[in-house]
Structures are given as structure tokens and as C-alpha cells.
Design a protein around this nucleic acid. Structure first.
Lengths: 113, 113
DNA sequence: CGGTATCCACCTTGATACTG
DNA sequence: CAGTATCAAGGTGGATACCG
């Protein structure tokens, strides 16, 4: 995303949530992140199937943003037909871990709903 | 937000992140949540000051959505001039707790940047 | 004070077609 | 296979003015 947002300052200390939200803000980002966590080293086409409903364009642009944000790494093999593999960086994995409590909150909520 | 999203199913189990993202998806939601966590029981005008840059309309609509999602509670006192106080529900506090690791991730990232 | 009412600009997402 | 190009649509957020 890389768009600077107003810092989130409360009572003199910076909360950091704003940064995280910029990185996972897209509609599909967390889904891609999750898919890559569950299925490491995935190819573009596989990823598209793992995130049902996403279009090629949106998947491509989100992957590019996530790469720029340093949470996804992309490896292109010089073959015919072309092959590209996506995976999580260390930072991407840590982000996924940081997302887990949030996922748990969502799951609980689904129960009670 | 309350808009139903495609469930996020990976390897047969539901990840729950999608639910959470619907709830905190708005541009300002986490900031409001954070502000209410740092400053419990806040009035509309105070809240507006605590979240710099937000407009009345957006603050009002976000508060309403968060109320509908059960993470914010609103108490209107029948006085003149009118007074309304907002606070976090139990669920809202748990959501805030679940957000903390994400905030920590963002803070670390700000360091290294 | 605590909001609504309008109106609008932008951005994200999406459908479809095409290419190295 | 792994994208890009183009165009369209819709929703989110924002500016401003006004109300009980």
C-alpha cells in the first residue's frame, strides 16, 4: 500500500496499528497471507484457486504491494512455460502470527452468531 | 460493516480473519477502537479530537457500525445540552487485546524503517 | 452538543480481452 | 502460465451546510 497515513498517537505513544492496517488493508491481503501460510511456495495459478473470487488483476497487484511491503517474496524461474513462486518472508510469517489472535476473535464471534 | 464476505476456508478449516476484517475494515475503525481503549467513556466531540482528521459524518457512521457489531456501546443522557458517551463493550475490549500483537508488529516495523 | 443531509471525488474492485 | 491493458461500476470517505 505504502501510502503514508496520519500517525496514530494516543497519550504520547504511537500505537502501530496504523502501519499494520496499511499493509493488510486491501480486501484480499489477509486472505492471500493466510493462503500462503497454509500452502507455502505457491504458484500464481494455484494462489488464484486458493483465494476464490479474486481476479488475476487484483491478485497480481496485491502480490506486488505485498512484495514491496516485504512480506511476500517472489521467485521467477526462467523456464518455458514460465513459472513463478510466491512465499512469505520472515516478516510475512511474523505478521501472520500477529494476526492469529485476531483470527481467533473472529472464530469465537462466528460461534456465538 | 455487516456485509457478508466469502468465508475464508483453507484446508477444510475456517480462518476467522475475514470476520475480524469486516469489523475493523473501515479506514478509521481501529483508530477509534484504540482511542476508546486509551480514553474510556468518551463523548462524541472528544472522540473527534482524539482521532485527528476524521469528519463528523465518518465518525458517526463508523460508531454506528461498531455499535451494530457489538464492540462499542453508546449511552445518551437526556440533558440539555445533549450528552452522549461511547465506550467499548467486553467484546470490543477483547478485540482490542487481539489487535495488540498486530500493533506490536507495526511498531517494530516502524523502527527498522 | 451531537449529530444529519447533500453532493461529490476518488479509489478499489471487477469483467473482459489480450500477450510474452 | 503468468500476467498486463482497458474500461466500467460501486462503494468509501470527505467537504460543507444545516438541525434538534
Amino acid at each position: 500500500m505504502a501510502t503514508a497515513n496520519r500517525p496514530c498517537v494516543e497519550g504520547g505513544h504511537v500505537c502501530g496499528i496504523d502501519i499494520s492496517m496499511e499493509v493488510i488493508g486491501g480486501k484480499w491481503k489477509v486472505l492471500i497471507l493466510w493462503a500462503l501460510h497454509e500452502h507455502p511456495r505457491r504458484r500464481f495459478g494455484e494462489l488464484r484457486r486458493l483465494v476464490p473470487g479474486i481476479t488475476e488483476k487484483v491478485l497480481a497487484s496485491h502480490l506486488r504491494e505485498m512484495e514491496a511491503d516485504g512480506i511476500v517474496d517472489r521467485v521467477a524461474y526462467d523456464e518455458v512455460p514460465p513459472r513463478v513462486e510466491y512465499g512469505l518472508t520472515k516478516d510475512g510469517m511474523r505478521l501472520n502470527d500477529a494476526l492469529e489472535p485476531l483470527a481467533a476473535w473472529g472464530r469465537e464471534r462466528r460461534q456465538s452468531a
